[in-house]
Design a protein around this nucleic acid. Sequence first.
DNA 1: CACGTGACCGATT
DNA 2: AAATCGGCCACGT
Length: 103
Amino acid sequence: MEAVDSFPHRVWQIVAAIPAGYVTTYGEVARLAGSPRAARQVGGVLRRLPEGSTLPWFRVVNRHGAISLTGPDLQRQRQALLADGVQVSGNGQIDMQKYRWRY
DNA sequence: CACGTGACCGATT
DNA sequence: AAATCGGCCACGT
């Protein structure tokens, strides 16, 4: 069994705590998880989520406030955020001043 | 054990 | 302001 304090587990806990209507960054999740330089790994964990996961992975974007996914995946994340009440431009840009989650 | 990889980031052009 | 360059570190192979 996987230890409850493994990196993926911590990432899941943190992402689960992001309230609807807000977003945060990979780097911020990494810091809260205790590995400030492991932002890439946060992306890696979210990429490997099981198919029907309820985790709000779409509330995590890059430091520019842009969606890092490309093509159809970008649009999928954009739609999820719009449904969440977050304004997202066609190319996946979000106003962080307005929507950034303050822990 | 030694690479290669990547939903990233900060500093530096 | 935008692109480039190293560095980072958890995971596969």
